[in-house]
Amino acid sequence: MARIAGVNIPTNKQVHVALTYIHGIGQTTARSICDSTGVDPARRVNELSDADVLRIREHIDGNVQVEGDLRREVAVNIKRLMDLGCYRGLRHRRGLPVRGQRTHTNARTRKGPAKPIAGKKK
């Protein structure tokens, strides 16, 4: 099992798919990593040599922000918005949708399960 950026990536998948298991790497970034390191994206991870894995690991460490650093930066950005007291920060604070979605109906993922109102008629 190859370990890149602190994540065990699956060995039976193609390289460009396996790299997307790392937080912060999507399909486009995974393909660009394969191109810049000279690794064939269609090869399986278990077919890679140690040198290939090392090249991928060094490229990710040097050029892409992933996992803990990325999560920390996102958390700091959200905390900054909340401290400023701007509209987006207030929405984060209240646990409501931040990007202008309606909340009269829907938004259950963000608001949590519906709370029944006592004595409401059907």
Rank of each mutant, 00 (worst) to 15 (best):
N46S: 08
L48S: 07
V45Q: 06
T20R: 04
E58R: 12
P97H: 00
K120H: 09
L70Q: 12
L48F: 11
T37M: 03
Y21H: 15
G112L: 03
A18C: 03
H104V: 13
Q27F: 06
H92S: 02
D50N: 10
V66F: 14
G112Q: 10
T28D: 12
A114L: 05
G6E: 05
R71F: 13
L70K: 10
D83R: 04
R102N: 08
N63A: 10
V7W: 11
I4E: 08
V76A: 15
R110D: 09
E73C: 04
I60K: 02
L70H: 07
N106S: 11
I9H: 03
C86Y: 09
A2H: 05
I60V: 13
A18P: 07
V74W: 01
R108G: 03
A51L: 02
R72Q: 14
C34I: 07
K111Y: 05
V66I: 06
G100T: 03
L90Q: 08
L84G: 00
A18E: 07
A51R: 02
N12Q: 12
K79L: 11
I4V: 13
L19N: 06
V66H: 13
D69W: 00
A75R: 04
A30S: 10
H92R: 01
P41N: 01
M1Q: 14
T109E: 13
E73G: 08
G119Y: 02
D40E: 15
H104Q: 10
R31T: 06
S36K: 07
P97E: 03
I60C: 06
T11N: 05
N63F: 09
H92T: 05
A75C: 07
V76H: 02
V39G: 06
L48E: 12
D50L: 02
A5W: 08
Y21G: 11
N8D: 14
Q65N: 06
Q101V: 11
T105N: 04
G24H: 01
C86V: 14
G24E: 12
R108D: 12
P41M: 02
I56C: 08
K111C: 09
A30R: 00
R43C: 08
V39L: 00
E67D: 12
L19C: 06
T29W: 00
D35H: 05
I33S: 01
S36H: 02
